[in-house]
Design a protein around this nucleic acid. Structure first.
Length: 644
RNA sequence: GCCGUUUUAGCUCAGUGGUAGAGCACUUCCUUGGUAAGGAAGAGGUCAUGGGUUCAAAUCCCAUAAAUGGCUCCA
């Protein structure tokens, strides 16, 4: 008999050779029907593999992340089977599950390609094959046999993968006529795959190395119910509606011009209003937090970047130098603000008593991003960082980190970002030599970050080997409408620049010591932040931030004077908005204002002009009835205060 | 930078080798209208740019640029 522990701690006894399926069946018939896989002591396994004794087993269904991912991995095999049927001779590379669905990298061979027009045929074939309810059969294979199989099949990619595997650890999975090298696990059979959709085709390098051959990557997604697919597609549509590139154009926030140059955004008046309000918001918070604003030029001499090391590392791949009438004199557009701030630090001798020194600047920087990398406002070639550099003693790092975390969270809270992740990036413990700075300082900084995050109760994930060569960091990531993760806020420790710029302070014992430098940017950059903010709130910005809080809509041109009076009075009370004085009917004006996502529409006609009141309509909510101006102002102001 | 796709009026898009189209926006006129599109007329385009094929190119081919989905990259 086997002793099995369930996740709730309860125990069950099953006969020897029992499988995850048997466990599910012993719980309920429905669970057995919906089970896709199991976890055995935390590892995901096939549902029909015999269980070991004394294992903790939990049943995975479509509702578990690991269940979904197994399902999609199996779906990748199904797609591969369909591709082999439709494109004989196709070579398969790798086909994992991803966050939403799966992909398979394939080599179609010379002269063949797949486009989105071919998707329906592949989807049809997948569903046709799925109907066979083929079991995913697992088989242990010796390395020699595995090599023989894929040599016969002439698949160089699988052979290369096998080359890296240990004999005795190699398994094949077969469903129907399709056999793949695979560690598994898989769902029991193809019968649960009821809806399949190919999403996208793209190029991808074999093993992610751009020196290698480029393969065709087919992205797909499958579902156990057709309805789930429909809902998923609807969500994607919603994401497209929120896309900051679309809304940025529609709401007249920013634009690009081919003539100005790729990746160089033009901020339109409304976008500028939004951006400047964000700047003001942070400026205020930073003054309170002890930062001193500074301003530095947009260019710096070559020597500055030779000192910082950026010239050597990035000079050739970046914007090229600006020449002057003096032969040999060269300036660079600044790719970051740190070197300038280091020079500010150096303008006077520093005592340990002066530290920390915090210099903040909304610094516009220019980086020549690869052309294929440019993306709306999230990845551009000219952008403004809400940058600051903190110069402090090693023993102050933790305290400073905590203060910056507070600032970042303050920003996120006021803008309604709740779904963020915080990532601590540390050294690769296997390879400490590629990092600059002493072991001791690194250890100090790394534990300072971890402790600061823990003391602030910040949920974090820790990634080893993700630190910059010059120091560990803490990044805040927020998702965009399509679920892509973007780094916004960042806090980084830097041991490199203080060294290169020979920064010093005088310690209590009158010795010269090296300060630690922290880079930090709660927004990351205003461009990226605004992009993510647009998608986050679907263009319905918080009231305190939105470029126009109200629009006055006169019923006819007889009431334009009163409308202007309303506007003037509201402006005196620090609200901002406009009057729609067009010769249009009220229905049209309301429609246009709703489409422009203006928060408050103030309708004024005969009644309102006579009684000196306004009719208030709130975006997305409808008519709130009429009220005196004072009542409206009070209600709006209370909402703005609440937001802070 | 690499692979795929795209580029037609201010915007969204139709137009598969034979004289460039629609809706919205814009201008003018009519309309003075009470909570999501009032009516009419008008103006607006080197079909991204440069080459090529053809009697003839928005349409086919090549190059370049930009956008876009990925990959690689991201101080």
């Amino acid at each position: 008999m086997l002793n099995i522990t369930l996740p709730d701690g309860s125990q069950r006894q099953l006969p020897d050779g029992a499988t995850g399926y048997d466990v599910a069946a012993s719980i309920s018939e429905g669970l057995a029907r919906n089970a896709l896989a199991v976890t055995v002591n935390g590892d995901v396994r096939d549902l029909h593999r015999p269980l070991p004794d004394n294992a903790t087993v939990s049943i995975l269904t479509w509702n578990d992340t690991a269940g979904k991912s197994t399902y999609w991995h199996s779906s990748a095999h199904l797609m591969a089977e369909a591709l082999e049927a439709l494109y004989p001779g196709v070579k398969l590379a790798i086909g994992p599950a991803i966050e939403n669905g799966f992909y398979y990298d394939v080599d179609l061979g010379e002269g063949r390609s797949i486009s989105s027009e071919d998707f329906p045929e592949i989807e049809k074939k997948m569903l046709e094959l799925a109907k066979h309810k083929s079991r995913y059969e697992r088989k242990d294979v010796s390395k020699a046999d595995a090599i023989a199989y894929f040599t016969e099949k002439q698949d160089p990619y699988k052979l290369e993968l096998i080359d890296g595997l240990e004999d005795g650890q190699i398994t094949f999975y077969t469903q129907g006529d399709f056999t793949d090298l695979c560690r598994g696990p898989h769902i029991p059979d193809t019968g649960t795959i009821k809806a399949a959709k190919l999403m996208n085709v793209a190029g991808a390098y074999w093993r992610g190395d751009e020196k290698n051959k480029q393969l065709t990557r087919l992205y797909g997604i499958t579902f156990p119910k057709a309805k789930d697919l429909a809902e998923y597609l609807e969500r994607l549509e919603e994401a497209k509606r929120r896309d900051h590139r679309k809304l940025g154009k529609e709401l007249k926030l920013f634009a690009f011009s081919e003539k100005v140059g790729a990746g160089l955004p033009l901020w339109l008046p409304k976008g500028t209003a939004l951006r400047e309000r964000l700047e003001q918001f942070l400026r205020k918070a930073q003054v309170k937090a002890g930062y001193q604003p500074v301003v530095t030029p947009h260019i710096g001499s070559k020597e500055l970047y030779v000192t910082s090391g950026h010239y050597e590392k990035y000079g050739a791949d970046s914007f090229q130098p600006i020449k002057t009438p003096n032969p040999g004199e060269e300036f660079f557009l600044k790719p970051m603000n740190c070197p300038h701030h280091c020079e500010i630090y150096k303008t006077e001798p520093r005592s340990y008593r002066d530290l920390p020194v915090r210099y903040a600047e909304f610094g516009t920087v220019y980086r020549y991003e690869q052309s294929g990398e440019l993306h709306g406002l999230t990845r551009v070639r000219g952008f403004t960082q809400d940058d600051a550099h903190i110069f402090c003693r090693p023993d102050q790092v933790k305290e400073e980190f905590k203060k910056v975390i507070d600032l970042v969270l303050y920003v996120f809270k006021n803008l309604g970002f709740e779904d963020y992740t915080a990532q601590i990036s540390l050294r690769d413990p296997e390879n400490k030599t590629k990092y600059i700075g002493s072991d001791e300082n690194w250890a100090l900084a790394e534990s300072a970050i971890q402790e600061a995050a823990a003391e602030k109760g910040l949920p974090t994930v820790t990634e080893y080997g993700e630190a910059a060569f010059y120091g560990p960091k803490l990044d805040f990531m927020v998702r965009d409408a399509l679920g892509r993760r973007w780094q916004l806020g960042t806090i980084q420790v830097d041991y490199n620049l203080p060294e290169r710029f020979d920064l010093e302070y005088v310690a209590p014992d009158n010795t010269k010591q090296r300060p630690v430098m922290l880079h930090r940017a709660p927004f990351g950059s205003l461009e990226r932040f605004v992009a993510v903010l647009i998608e986050h709130c679907a263009g319905n910005f918080p009231l305190w931030l939105t470029p126009e809080q109200f629009i006055v809509l006169p019923i006819s041109d007889k009431y334009i004077d009163y409308a202007n009076e309303v506007k003037a009075q509201l402006e005196q009370r620090d609200l901002r908005g406009t009057v729609d004085a067009r010769d249009e009917r009220i229905g049209r004006k309301i429609r246009d204002a709703e489409m422009a996502k203006l928060p408050y529409l103030l309708v004024v006609g005969e009644k309102e002009a006579q009684d000196k009141i306004i009719s208030v309509r709130k975006h997305g909510e409808g008519d709130l009835g009429s009220m005196p101006l004072d009542a409206f102002v009070k209600s709006v102001q209370s909402q703005i205060v609440e937001a802070y």
